Amino acid sequence: MGSFSSRRVAAGCGIAAPVLVLSAILLSTALADPFTWSGHALSDLGRPGTATFPLFNGGLVLGGVVGAPFVGRLWAEAWTPLERAGVVCYGLAIAGMALVGVFFLEHTDWYLGRSLHGPVALAFFAGAPVANLLLGAGAVRAGERRWGAVTVGVGLAHLLLWGGWLLAIDVGLLESGAWFGLVEFLAAVLFGGWTAVAAVRLLDRS
C-alpha cells in the first residue's frame, strides 16, 4: 500500500509542478509593469527590485522541487536505455528550470562573481526537446508506439518553435530578440503540457 501510494504521489507531482510554474509565470506577467510579450524575456520578471521577483523565481524553484519526485517516477517506469537517457535529460531540464529562479538575472550583485543564468536557462530549453525525443523513441522501442509518437512530436514542436523564431529573425521578419518572452512561454507550455499528460498516464497505470 505504501509503495502504491508513493507512486501515485510522485505521479501527482507531475501534474502539480507545471500548474505551479505556469501559474506563477502568468500571474507575474499580469502584475509586472512594464511587461510585453514582444519586448521582454520571461527572466525580466525575476530581476531584483521588480514586484514579481519573489513570485516568478519562487514559482520556478517550487516547481522544480515538486517536480523532482516525478522524475524519479519516470525513471522507475523507464524500460529501455533510450528512455533512461531521456529521463536524465528531463531531470536536467527540471533542474535548469528551478535554477533559473536561483541564478536569476543580475544575481551576481547578490552572490557569485560569474553569472550562471544563461547556462541554466539553456539546460532547460535545450534539455526539454532532447528529453522528449529520447523518451519518445524509447517508448516506440518499448512497444508504446502511439505515446512514443506523441512524445517525439512534442520534441519536434520545440525544435520548430525555436527554429522558426530564429529563422524569422534571420530573414528580417523579426528584430533580434523580439517576441522572445512569448517563445519562452510556449516552450514552457509544451514542456508542462507533456509533463501533465505523462503524469495522468502514470496515475492511470498506478
Rank of each mutant, 00 (worst) to 15 (best):
D109Y: 11
D109E: 15
D109K: 15
W110Y: 15
W110G: 05
Y111S: 13
L112T: 11
G113S: 13
G113C: 08
G113R: 15
R114D: 10
S115R: 03
S115D: 13
S115T: 12
S115K: 03
S115P: 00
S115Y: 06
L116S: 01
L116Y: 12
H117G: 05
H117N: 06
H117V: 05
G118D: 02
G118C: 00
P119C: 07
V120T: 07
V120M: 12
A121K: 05
A121G: 04
A121R: 04
A121D: 03
L122Y: 09
L122H: 05
L122K: 07
L122E: 04
L122C: 00
A123G: 05
A123W: 06
A123K: 01
A123V: 02
F124A: 00
F124N: 02
F124L: 12
F125R: 02
F125V: 04
F125Q: 04
F125M: 04
A126C: 08
A126Y: 13
A126G: 03
A126R: 06
G127W: 10
G127N: 08
A128R: 01
A128M: 13
A128W: 06
A128F: 07
V130M: 08
V130L: 15
V130W: 03
V130R: 03
V130P: 01
A131D: 05
A131F: 10
N132Y: 10
N132D: 09
L133I: 09
L133P: 12
L134N: 03
L134S: 08
L135G: 14
G136K: 14
G136S: 09
G136F: 14
G136W: 13
A137I: 10
A137N: 09
G138D: 04
G138T: 08
G138K: 15
G138L: 14
G138C: 11
G138E: 09
G138A: 13
G138P: 00
A139C: 08
A139I: 02
A139H: 01
V140T: 13
V140K: 15
V140F: 08
R141E: 05
R141Y: 01
A142T: 02
E144F: 05
E144H: 13
E144C: 02
R145P: 01
R145V: 07
R146D: 12
R146G: 08
R146E: 13
W147M: 01
W147N: 01
G148K: 06
G148D: 03
G148F: 09
G148H: 08
A149L: 15
A149V: 12
V150C: 11
T151Q: 13
T151M: 11
V152H: 11
